[in-house]
């Protein structure tokens, strides 16, 4: 397989309003006319108070939420894909190979052992070879003790679940990374490991968009800040 070319993201006119039909049709405008771009080798940090829509942006980019208006152009291998209009099939393919998303909370298929969760990322990405050694290496790097590898993470502590979440994304060199508070419940040593993982991701050319409440982490990994206040939707 040829190594993936470095991608870039360009977002323009992105808006999102939630309409709650079960609550008398209440409308919650979140984003209005958002625009930004991320080049290969950049880590863009979304900044602003909670509730301003930072996580919503990541979910829109991942296809987990549908965009109301606007375009989210992913350029890779001289191809352009508008994530806002991509088919479910296209989104699923991008999630396997191209876009890695570290959600705030680990959400996995129940009863699947930790090591398999991590190895599945590599299998889905078409990794040539045995996916177990690199999976074990990443779990070790994130200090998940070996005695937990064959257990499903549902009973793990918050910090352990967070690290499983990180391991299953960072095990594959995703060209695009979406990181929602990746260090929120980590101790200092693990936080340092995650900083190194993020730095080496953009250093190899990945386009990274993240939310980092921890200012120390943000200063260490972000190459640029985006103040979300300018895209706040008028309620």
């Amino acid at each position: 397989m040829t190594p993936p070319a470095f991608p870039s993201l360009q977002v323009d006119g992105l808006s999102k309003t939630f309409t709650l039909h079960t609550q008398n049709g209440a409308r919650l405008p979140v984003l209005q006319g958002m625009r930004f771009s991320v080049s290969p080798g950049e880590c863009l940090a979304l900044s602003g108070p909670s509730g301003i829509g930072k996580s919503t942006v990541l979910r829109l980019l991942y296809g987990n939420y549908g965009a109301e208006t606007g375009r989210m152009i992913l350029r890779q291998d001289e191809r352009e894909i508008d994530l806002a209009a991509a088919s479910p099939r296209e989104i699923l393919r991008l999630r396997k190979h191209t876009i890695g998303y570290v959600s705030q909370f680990l959400r996995v298929i129940p009863r699947v052992p930790t090591l398999e969760i991590v190895a599945d990322t590599l299998r889905n990405a078409g990794f040539a070879g045995d996916p177990l050694p690199p999976s074990k290496a990443m779990l070790t790097r994130l200090r998940i003790p070996e005695r937990l590898w064959n257990l499903a993470p549902s009973t793990f502590s918050g910090g352990e679940q967070q690290r499983v979440n990180l391991a299953r994304v960072f095990v594959h060199p995703f060209p695009v990374l979406l990181l929602d508070e990746p260090t929120a419940s980590l101790d200092a040593a693990n936080r340092q490991t995650v900083i190194e993982l993020i730095q080496s991701a953009w250093a190899r050319g990945a386009a990274v968009v993240g939310i980092f409440h921890d200012l120390e982490v943000r200063d260490a990994v972000a190459t640029r800040l985006l103040d979300m206040d300018q895209f706040r939707a008028a309620a």
């Binding site: 939630f18 039909h21 079960t22 979910r59 296809g63 987990n64 939420y65 549908g66 699923l92």
Partner: peptide, 21 residues
């Protein structure tokens, strides 16, 4: 009609919202 996690996490139609909630 759509991607499973999007339909369940960002349902658009009143009936889907009722179903999910």
């Amino acid at each position: 009609h759509g991607l499973t996690d999007r339909v369940l996490d960002d349902p658009q139609h009143p009936y889907t919202q009722l179903l999910v909630s």
